[in-house]
Measured scan of single mutants.
Amino acid sequence: LDITFHVDGKNIHVHGASEEVVRIIEELIKNNARAEEIKETLERLLR
């Protein structure tokens, strides 16, 4: 699975993920999660 995301100002662009995963990533970023935390969360979800 190949998910890429980047933050452009306040806009979060996520590619290669389901809508549910996109929402989770957006929440994590809004809550100022570190990249490592986001990665760990995604790995748990995608197991």
Rank of each mutant, 00 (worst) to 15 (best):
V14L: 05
E40N: 12
H15L: 07
I29C: 04
E37V: 12
V14H: 00
I3L: 14
G16D: 08
A17D: 01
V7L: 03
T4N: 15
R47M: 13
N32V: 05
V7H: 05
I29T: 02
A17F: 02
I25V: 11
V21N: 03
N32E: 09
I3P: 14
N11S: 14
R44P: 04
T41L: 12
H15C: 06
D2E: 10
V21M: 12
N11K: 13
H13F: 08
I24V: 12
T41P: 01
A17R: 01
G9V: 00
D8N: 06
V21Q: 07
T41Q: 11
I29P: 00
V7F: 05
L45G: 02
E37H: 12
R44S: 12
D2Q: 03
A35R: 03
K30A: 12
L45P: 00
R47S: 15
E20H: 10
D2L: 04
D2P: 01
I25A: 03
L28W: 03
L28S: 03
E37T: 10
V14S: 01
L45E: 07
E37L: 12
E36W: 05
I24P: 00
K30P: 00
H13E: 07
E19C: 04
R34D: 12
N31Q: 13
D2K: 07
I38M: 04
E40H: 12
K10L: 15
K39I: 15
R47F: 04
E40W: 04
V21K: 01
V14Q: 00
T4M: 10
V22L: 07
T4S: 15
E26W: 10
D2C: 08
V7E: 08
K10D: 14
E19G: 09
I29L: 11
R23K: 12
V22R: 06
R23T: 08
H6S: 09
E20W: 06
G9D: 07
I12P: 00
E37M: 13
I12W: 07
G16K: 06
G16C: 03
K10F: 14
V14I: 09
K39H: 12
N11D: 15
L28Q: 06
N31K: 11
N11Y: 14
H6E: 15
N32T: 06
L45T: 04
E19M: 14
T4E: 15
V21G: 02
G9K: 00
G9Y: 00
L42T: 02
E36V: 09
I25E: 00
L28H: 04
H13Y: 08
D2Y: 02
V14C: 02
F5Q: 07
R47H: 15
K10G: 09
L42H: 00
I24R: 10
A17V: 15
K10H: 11
E37G: 05
R23Q: 13
A35S: 12
L1P: 06
V14K: 00
E20P: 06
K39C: 06
E37P: 02
I3S: 01
K39M: 15
R44Q: 12
V22T: 03
A33L: 06
S18Y: 03
L46D: 06
R23H: 10
V21P: 00
G16M: 05
N32K: 12
T41F: 12
E26V: 12
N11G: 05
K39R: 13
R44V: 12
L42G: 00
E20K: 09
I38Y: 03
R23V: 08
T41A: 14
L46A: 09
G9H: 02
V22A: 05
L28T: 01
R44N: 13
K30L: 12
I25D: 00
D2F: 03
I12V: 08
E43W: 02
F5C: 05
K30R: 14
A17L: 08
D2S: 04
D8A: 04
L1R: 12
E27K: 09
D8Y: 02
E36P: 09
T41G: 04
T4Q: 12
E43C: 02
I24K: 11
E40Q: 12
H13N: 04
L46E: 06
V22F: 05
D8F: 02
R47E: 13
E36Y: 05
R34V: 08
A33R: 09
K10N: 13
R47W: 02
G16N: 14
T41N: 08
I3N: 02
S18F: 05
S18I: 04
F5I: 15
K10M: 15
I12N: 00
V21E: 03
D2V: 05
E20F: 05
E36Q: 12
R34M: 08
E36T: 10
V22P: 00
H15D: 03
L1I: 15
T41Y: 12
E19Q: 12
I29V: 07
I25W: 02
N31S: 13
L45I: 11
N31C: 07
T4I: 15
R34A: 13
V22E: 02
V21S: 05
N31M: 13
A33E: 06
R47N: 14
E36I: 09
E40K: 13
E27W: 07
E43A: 09
E26C: 07
L1N: 09
L28C: 02
E40F: 04
